[in-house]
Amino acid sequence: MNSLILRAATRVLAPMMLMLSLFLLWRGHNLPGGGFIGGLVATSAIALQGIAFGPEVARRTLVLPPAVLAGVGLVVAVIATLPAGLVELPFFTGLWLKLDLGDGAILPLSTPLLFDIGVFLVVIGGVCAILLALEEDPETDQAGEP
């Protein structure tokens, strides 16, 4: 699809959607949202890029190959399960570190948040891997046996 309007719109929309996805990720613990929904929004942004400018551009946005990005997300999620072991609590126990930023503002850092970031990354990486594979030209990528 080589629509000019789509390209122009994507140029504006995609960054906004990515910002939105981060916002949804952050607020998810208290309001509708969360890592998964955030991830899906980000995925939509990247899929849109893929449609507008081609999969290569979308891949550049992701920096890492999508499957590897999903792997990174998985690592992050798994790491979130572990710190509890350091303080002799069961597997996956949520730990909270409330940073006082002054002025009464508190930045709650926690393993559930870390876990949600992992979710966010896995969703982006995983779904983008499938979408981008499908968006690619089918004629050139038949690596399997006939």
């Binding site: 590897v68 792997g71 990174v72 998985l74 798994v78 572990l82 072991g85 069961p90 597997f91």
Partner: peptide
């Protein structure tokens, strides 16, 4: 943690082998 260990190991290996692809 004995019960969780097999899961943690398998997940970590899955992730690590992905990163080392």
């Amino acid at each position: 943690w004995y019960a969780a260990a097999p899961l943690i190991v398998a997940m970590t290996t899955a992730a690590a082998t992905t990163l080392a692809h």
